[in-house]
Every structure is written in structure tokens, then in C-alpha cells.
Design a protein around this nucleic acid. Structure first.
Length: 109
DNA sequence: ATTCTGACGTGGG
DNA sequence: CCCCACGCCAGAA
């Protein structure tokens, strides 16, 4: 694939690679695309993910495994339902067995 | 141009 | 685990 030069495209590209039933953190993606330290930009990029149906933003959480971005989805618990539908256990906006379902792009790839 | 905010991360206590 | 402070970069007012 051609290398995306846009920061957003890179984020979307990695997010699309997240396997089913797995989750990753903003920092992991940021580091993989070469924007280590700018994890905030990853989250910001996700703001435009709504235009990219192939981008599973619900599989991206912060390093604590908290569904910090659930507030940005249509419903209040849409993100949690999506994760639960993939077999991921979520409790109080926090992913259970986070280390088990965690997927690191720079590590798995 | 300046200021603030934001789906974060890391380090120290 | 919690809390606090700093860094980070892009965009909106």
C-alpha cells in the first residue's frame, strides 16, 4: 500500500488493522505511526473516524483500558455494546482482562 | 498572533 | 491503584 502522508490516514490505517475482539491504545497507535508522545492527536484523528466506517474507533481506548471516547459515540453505551458484541467484557467504562485483549501494532506486526 | 481545549502518555509522590 | 504536573500537536474562537 502507498504510505499515507496524512496523520489522520495513518491512524485510520492502523485502526483498521485491529483484529476482531481486540483493542489497542492511542499511545500504541501514535508510537507505531511515528507520532509517539502525540497520543492526543490520535484521539483527535478519531474524531474524523465517523467518516470512515472501516475504522473501529470503539476498539481504541486509553492505556488504562477505559472507554474514554464512549461519550463521542451516538449513544451513551454504544461503544460498550460494540465491544461486548465482540466478546470483550466491559464494566463501568473499563475493559476487563485488558492485557488479554490488548493488541499492540508495533509488537504484533 | 494568542489562548484554550482535547477520545493521551509518562513520571514522580 | 490514585493524584498532580508537564509535554504534545492540531484546530477553533
Amino acid at each position: 500500500m502507498a504510505e499515507e502522508k496524512n496523520f489522520f490516514d495513518k491512524v485510520y490505517d492502523v485502526a483498521r488493522l485491529i483484529p476482531y475482539g481486540r483493542v489497542t491504545s492511542y499511545g500504541a497507535i501514535a508510537r507505531y505511526i511515528g507520532a509517539a508522545g502525540s497520543a492526543r492527536m490520535v484521539g483527535w484523528a478519531m474524531n474524523g473516524a465517523g467518516k470512515h466506517p472501516d475504522v473501529p474507533a470503539h476498539r481504541v481506548v486509553n492505556r488504562k483500558g477505559l472507554l474514554t471516547g464512549k461519550h463521542h459515540f451516538d449513544g451513551t453505551n454504544l461503544m460498550q455494546q460494540l465491544l461486548e458484541s465482540e466478546g470483550i467484557e466491559v464494566k463501568e467504562n473499563a475493559i476487563q482482562n485488558f492485557e488479554t485483549v490488548f493488541w499492540d501494532p508495533g509488537k504484533e506486526l
